[in-house]
Design a protein around this nucleic acid. Sequence first.
RNA 1: GGUCCCAUCGUCUAGUGGUUUAGGACAUCGGCCUCUCACGCCGAAAACAGGGGUUCAACUCCCCUUGGGACUACCA
Length: 425
Amino acid sequence: MKDKILVRTRFAPSPTGYLHIGGARTALFSWLYARHTHGKFVLRIEDTDTKRSTKEATKQILDAMKWLGLTWDEGPFYQTERMEIYRSYIEKLLDEGKAYWCECTPDILGGKRKKAIKEGRKPKYDGTCRDKGLGPGPGRVVRFATPKTGVTAFDDIIKGRITIDNDELDDLIILRSDGIPTYNLTVVVDDYTMGITHIIRGDDHVNNTPRQVLIYEALGAAPPVFAHVPMILGSDKARLSKRHGATSVMAYKDMGYLPEAVVNYLVRLSWSHGDQEIFSATELIDLFDLKDVGKSAAVFNPEKLLWLNHHYIKQGDIVRLSRLAIPFIKAQGYDTSDIAYIQKVVTDIRERTKTLTDMADFGDFYFKDIDIGAISKDTKDKFLNPDMIPAFKSLTDELDAINTLDRRLCEDAFRRVLESCNIKL
RNA sequence: GGUCCCAUCGUCUAGUGGUUUAGGACAUCGGCCUCUCACGCCGAAAACAGGGGUUCAACUCCCCUUGGGACUACCA
């Protein structure tokens, strides 16, 4: 047994919207790695963008995490409550000459940027204020003094070694003119002070990792281990977004998906364990390792998610499934007070329903005290057509017309409908 | 445009130089089961982006091309 340091991972969403499928997968990997190594999983809310962050979004993210079963050991910490800490580190950087005040306004910077692009040069900060020795003042920001030469590299567990020339990097702003520090500073200070050992995040962050490594160094801190997980794409290979369908984790809950299905689906995106497709949460904790995470992006495939959901509906515990199905059945306006009956129904139809919503759709055929008025017109026409009654009696091929339903269900429903119409068989 | 990253069936992936006629899963298409649908079972079709190397031997290693993605903010 080799010496083990305690692994500490984190998930650090920015509360500007609901928990996205991609974010959930990153959180899942981070959580799994912490659980696998018996480490700690920290939750941090990156709300320094005060204009776009909302309390509501924070709540939605937390709810989605809970629904998926991604329990955190520490936090949630809020960056807006840690301003003193960031300021002290910025102060330190300033004192040591590793950062400086800059008075360039967004306007002139924007102009220079446009001009640079037009002339085919890279649009980076030109260092106008770097050696001015400015102090604080209205409208001023603090920039990090990036080394002008040399290279910065880090070893990513997933991607391997990544190297970039320092002259590609510019002097990024670490403190905005409104006194609020920016992401690249807060993320480093937080991961450092929170003792994060493994930063597991989306690979859209690889590009600013070198800047962060430089900040770690300027702070005299050893950078943690990085693991950048590939993105999740839509069917057209573009970053997964609304136009590809539902991207909110909770939307899947609302559509009648089971959390274990969503977890099982997401974990198989860029990660695998031989030919195995079905994994329980405990199995995942046991088997998951960052070294088995692939390097390339994965396309989100709703059909496979649906298949997994169906799998868990067919396999699941009836009592739990029934409990989960009740809100959906109730939403369709049916009486759900008879739990035993609900359980019977769930047992009967689970093989042909892929979601909890599908289950509720069978309500017309299953729930007692059938209200003729509530039955869809289509169904009613079929069932109450006098010509259909003899056909029903003999249970012959006419029933094939209602081909998507189990004949047993039809008989059942027929009987109730006919009874309620006082038609004797 | 610049920088960084990626590249096996339609999709998720196995594969880490020879064991491969490239395996599994979803979807698709056949068949069986069956009073229908579904479930289940059996089977079919389906991929190493292209070109150079390295090597006795490349899906596996290197380079180029092509394609895709990310970043390029006083957003994270």
